[in-house]
């Protein structure tokens, strides 16, 4: 038995190394399955919880056009949640169980959504910075080793790049607008810059899962590599907008042809991960409340479907 298992595992790794896609019915190591369920469901939960901070501004969007774009964007996110939950289901996870894990606090979602959206410029920052960071994290996942996840991500990434452009456009309009609008943009940028750097996760030396995830090609770049890419991509955009990056240690390093930047506040990062951010409680509570308030609706739909089925038989 022992040697057979080893052979299977070796064969599996050989397929990964050859960049083949693993499909739902293929043999896979338990740990691979578990890691993917954790990662995909976490991603699905992030889409679901992420609807809340942006949904917060739909009813107050400053123009009808912005309202329509924001509503469409949040609708896209609900759609992403759906295909990601479906991708996780192909690994044997059930949506009910995944949601139960979210509601109990066992499963995580992206910590960025535990920060509040306080002004209209926050909607710009969420699109420009948060979706920008998400894209860097997610584009490599279009080539991730698990087929259903990779295919879901192709669609997700297409829509996310549209989201990022609309976020940038909101910021650009604000920065080219009245002084109050420019100030609104800078104030929001100051609050969102550091939390978005945290979206890439802990430093490589503190990221225990990275090595194995790289080996399985679930992950293709390390956290620090992606964080560096993000800074290098965003700083020129901030300069273009005329926004001040809130980091006194930021400067161009000619030798490495990249920016040096200050240290993320890792205490804050871990506090928010542990559930102690400003909005952790409210976000989770909103999800639990929606689920509990919706229980009678789901039960009614099931009861009606049963009655229908019985009538069809008789």
């Amino acid at each position: 038995m022992e040697t057979l298992e080893l052979t299977q595992e070796e064969q599996f790794q050989a397929r990964i190394d050859a960049d083949e896609r693993i499909e739902p019915k293929d043999w896979m190591p338990d740990a691979y399955r578990k890691t993917l369920i954790r990662q995909i469901s976490q991603h699905a939960h992030s889409e679901l919880v992420g609807m809340l901070p942006e949904g917060n501004w739909i009813t107050r969007a400053p123009s009808l056009k912005r309202k329509a774009i924001l509503l469409a964007k949040v609708q896209d996110e609900a759609g992403h949640g759906l295909y990601l939950y479906s991708a996780a289901e192909t690994l044997g996870a059930s949506r009910d169980q995944m949601l139960a894990d979210l509601h109990s606090g066992k499963a995580k979602y992206s910590s960025i959504f535990n920060y509040p959206t306080l002004s209209w410029a926050d909607i710009g920052c969420v699109g420009w910075l948060v979706d920008g960071a998400a894209i860097l994290n997610q584009v490599p996942l279009c080539r991730t080793s698990y087929g259903p996840y990779a295919r879901a991500m192709v669609r997700v990434c297409k829509e996310e790049s549209f989201h990022q452009r609309q976020g940038f456009e909101i910021m650009q309009t604000l920065c080219e607008g009245a002084p109050e609008q420019k100030a609104m943009a800078q104030e929001a940028f100051n609050r969102w810059w550091w939390p978005t750097l945290m979206m890439f996760g802990p430093k490589d030396e503190d990221s225990p899962n990275t090595e194995r995830s790289m080996q399985w090609r679930i992950k293709r770049f390390t956290n620090d590599e992606l964080r560096q890419k993000f800074v290098d991509m965003m700083v020129p955009q901030a300069e273009f907008l005329g926004l001040q990056v809130p980091d006194k240690d930021l400067h161009w390093n000619e030798d490495k042809k990249a920016y040096d930047f200050g240290e993320v506040n890792w205490d804050e990062f871990w506090q928010v991960v542990k559930g102690n951010g400003l909005c952790n409680h409210d976000r989770l509570q909103a999800r639990v409340q929606a689920h509990e308030d919706g229980a009678w609706v789901r039960e009614a739909a099931l009861a009606h479907a049963r009655k229908r089925a019985e009538k069809a038989v008789s």
Binding site: Q75, A78, G79, G294
Partner: peptide, 19 residues
């Protein structure tokens, strides 16, 4: 209807309401 966004009884219906 947009006030429902993120608070619907099930994700599919959240999507329908937003739509």
């Amino acid at each position: 209807l947009s006030e429902w966004c993120g608070h619907g009884p099930v994700l599919e219906q959240d999507l329908a309401l937003a739509n």
